[in-house]
Design a protein around this nucleic acid. Structure first.
Lengths: 198, 198
DNA sequence: TTGGTCATGTAAGTCGTTACATGATTGG
DNA sequence: CCAATCATGTAACGACTTACATGACCAA
């Protein structure tokens, strides 16, 4: 149930429409917490109903409208309460390692395909997260720039440092997954004989 | 939807009751894929309905019964098909890194509490997974022993090696998470000043 | 005038969580 | 005889997925 806190983190930097928030999910928080629009719009309505956000109907052109959401004091407090609350961890549920534990039931080719897919998956994530680190350093992330604009001077270093910290952790994790899968490819070579040239 | 494949992996070594499978989840596959009994019993019934398992009603004492599940050829094939299928990855949804990215909104004490909880969480997992490695090496895991008993000699090495491979990956991941959180504690010290003695 | 993007949802279904519910058997 | 453990579920709810649905605005 972190979706609402991800949304609060975004709305905290300034009023936004559902559409803007949904787009931000694709490029900033979304690198850490994915959510589709079909989940975001109803959640914003719920949060408005609970008083965490205030919605403001705006006109757009002749007949178009959009709804700008502002954070309320209750919303700000909910975010701070969440930051102070003990984290909740999901029980482990890891399809990749589950499958890896039974690779003797696969052919060597299937095992290699699986591990290569794992590498490709994490290389994709790695690229996202490294890109985000670059954008943080270049002050090139629009949300971070907006955030820093409303942040007191003495808090800018901290804001940037914690963001770097989060993404560095993700980069390390991705590198670990890739290294693990590579060692799995080596293991298959040792156990089943090296792969024939295609 | 890996639950049924985790169950198939277990039933593949020999007939088991729902209760036994549920217990195995606590000590073997459960280290990789958690599932509560309230999910396991209905899933077994569904799998029986789909012909992946064959259930056999047994009497226990005077009036007690239990249901033994055998894997069917269709079940075996479903497991092998799953091993050969491209893995599916969930979109990223990581509450810990989400929170880490906004730690400037927390007090130093809250930030430290969060990171310490993260360390405690992963030290718990680490202990589980290292324990599992020890049991693999000592041939002390009942499911693995049963598995090896029905495994051809030439396949034993592979069976053990892949299991080690899976758990070694999890151990590395846990170590990475712990290292990350420790570096976060150092970061808080640098940014906010070292913690006062309690 | 047309295609992209702005804008906001609904509906059906799956997976998982938490809590509740019940009763039999067996070993000490 | 009593506690542990064997044994099997149901019910309600919440989070997320996938697919569908609609329409306005704007720039080329």
């Amino acid at each position: 149930m972190s979706l609402r806190y991800a949304l609060l983190a975004l709305v905290r930097v300034g009023p936004q429409s559902g559409y803007e928030l949904q787009k931000q999910f694709a490029v900033s928080v979304g690198h850490v917490w994915h959510a589709p629009d079909s989940q975001i719009y109803p959640e914003l309505r719920r949060m408005e109903g609970e008083g965490l956000l205030a919605g403001e109907e705006q006109t757009r052109g002749e007949r178009g409208t959009r709804r700008l959401y502002h954070i309320t004091p209750a919303g700000e407090q909910a975010f701070l309460d969440w930051m102070a609350s003990p984290p909740d961890y999901q029980r482990v549920r890891d399809p990749a390692h589950l499958r890896a534990a039974y690779l003797e039931a696969a052919t060597p080719a299937q095992g290699r395909a699986f591990l290569r897919a794992h590498i490709a998956q994490w290389e994709g994530e790695l690229e996202q997260w490294r890109g985000e680190l670059v954008r943080i350093d270049a002050a090139d992330n629009p949300m971070l720039v907006r955030r820093l604009a409303v942040t007191a001077d003495e808090d800018r270093e901290r804001t940037i440092a914690y963001k770097r910290f989060a993404y560095e952790g993700l980069v390390e994790r991705a590198l670990g997954e890739i290294q693990w899968a590579r060692s799995g490819l080596d293991l298959i070579d040792r156990l089943e004989g090296a792969e024939e040239a295609p």
